[in-house]
Simulated scan of single mutants.
Amino acid sequence: MDEIDETVRGLDGSLRLLDSLEALRLRLAPEVIVRLALPFEAVASLDLDAPDLRLMRNLSESEPPSIYIMSPGFLDTPHDREEYRLPYSETPWGERFTAEYVCGRSLYERERGWEYSKTVWVNLRQPSN
Rank of each mutant, 00 (worst) to 15 (best):
P64K: 03
L75V: 07
K118S: 07
L107K: 13
V8R: 14
V102F: 01
I4P: 13
R110T: 05
M70V: 03
R54I: 02
T77R: 15
P92Y: 12
L17C: 00
I67S: 01
R57L: 08
E3R: 09
R110A: 15
Q126R: 14
S89V: 12
T7V: 06
E83V: 04
E31V: 06
D52V: 06
L59M: 15
S60Y: 05
A44G: 11
L21D: 02
Y68M: 11
L59C: 10
L11N: 04
P65S: 10
G104T: 13
V32C: 05
E31N: 10
P78V: 03
P87G: 07
V8A: 15
V122R: 00
L75D: 13
A23F: 07
L48A: 11
F74Y: 05
R25W: 05
R85W: 02
R81H: 11
D12L: 13
V34R: 02
L59K: 02
E95C: 04
S20Y: 05
P39C: 03
E3C: 11
D47C: 05
R9T: 14
I4D: 07
G94R: 07
E82I: 13
P87E: 07
V43F: 02
S60L: 05
I33A: 04
R105E: 02
S71K: 05
G73V: 11
A42R: 13
R105A: 05
I4F: 12
E31M: 07
R81P: 01
Y68K: 12
L53V: 08
G113W: 13
D49M: 08
E82Q: 10
Y84F: 12
L124W: 02
L24C: 08
L124N: 01
E111F: 03
E3L: 11
E22P: 01
T7M: 12
R57P: 01
T7P: 04
D47E: 14
G104H: 09
H79E: 09
E109T: 03
R57I: 03
L75W: 08
V8N: 10
S66W: 00
D76V: 01
A29S: 08
Y108L: 04
Y101V: 00
I4H: 07
S45R: 08
A29K: 11
R96A: 11
I67V: 13
R105M: 06
L36G: 02
P78C: 03
D2E: 12
E22W: 07
I69H: 10
L38P: 00
E115D: 15
Y101M: 03
L53M: 12
E109H: 13
R125H: 10
L55H: 08
E111N: 12
L55K: 07
L46I: 14
R25V: 02
P92T: 05
T77G: 01
A37P: 02
L38V: 09
S14Q: 15
E82M: 11
N129K: 14
S71R: 13
P92V: 08
A50Q: 05
Y116A: 06
A42V: 02
M70G: 06
N58L: 04
R125I: 08
F40D: 00
V43A: 10
R96N: 15
D12Y: 15
A99E: 01
I67M: 01
W93P: 00
D47N: 12
S14Y: 05
L48N: 03
S89R: 06
S66V: 01
D49R: 12
L107H: 14
D19Y: 14
Y84M: 02
A23I: 03
A50L: 06
L21K: 00
V122K: 00
R57Y: 04
M70L: 14
S60Q: 10
Y108M: 08
E31I: 03
